[in-house]
């Protein structure tokens, strides 16, 4: 038991960023990618999910992938908080480029300017991308 607690404390020290910077539809990669994020959270790692570039569109409400027989990503995004992943960031510049605002998104996000993201990313241990 003590060992597990220690292990968890050590794990907590590792910060893992998951960057979604590309469209998520049409292939299974984003789904498999988010599986890693959920697993990382289940391992008590400090997980931060970042949307930028085209990837910010993944957050849009009212996606209808089932019209092409594809799987909905929104439920997984909603599940992030269940897995204690509460740091969901969006690059401010990307959001401005797409003229989007957080109320158009399926989950609450924090808008962070690129220069600050650089500092946050640099303090991470691992950055996952797909």
């Amino acid at each position: 038991m003590i060992l597990i607690v220690i292990l968890r404390l050590v794990n907590k020290l590792k910060t893992i960023f998951f960057v979604i910077d590309k469209p998520i539809h049409g292939n299974v990669c984003s789904q498999e990618f988010l599986d890693i994020a959920l697993m990382a959270a289940a391992f008590d790692l400090h997980v931060i999910v970042l949307f930028e570039g085209d990837g910010v569109n993944a957050l849009l409400k009212n996606q209808q992938p089932e019209t092409l027989g594809l799987k909905q990503v929104s439920p997984v995004l909603s599940a992030l908080s269940i897995y204690d992943i509460n740091e969901v960031l969006v690059e401010k510049e990307s959001m401005e480029l797409w003229r989007l605002s957080p109320e158009q998104f399926v989950i609450p996000v924090t808008s962070v300017p690129r220069v600050e993201l650089s500092q946050q990313l640099n303090s991470a241990d691992v950055v996952f991308s797909f």
Binding site: N11, K14, I16, D35, I36, M39, A40, F43, V126
Partner: peptide, 19 residues
């Protein structure tokens, strides 16, 4: 399963992805 990926991430000093 993905648990072994997590173990690798936790135990390694570096994790690098090729794709």
């Amino acid at each position: 399963g993905l648990g072994l990926l997590m173990e690798a991430v936790i135990d390694s000093d570096r994790h690098i992805t090729f794709g």
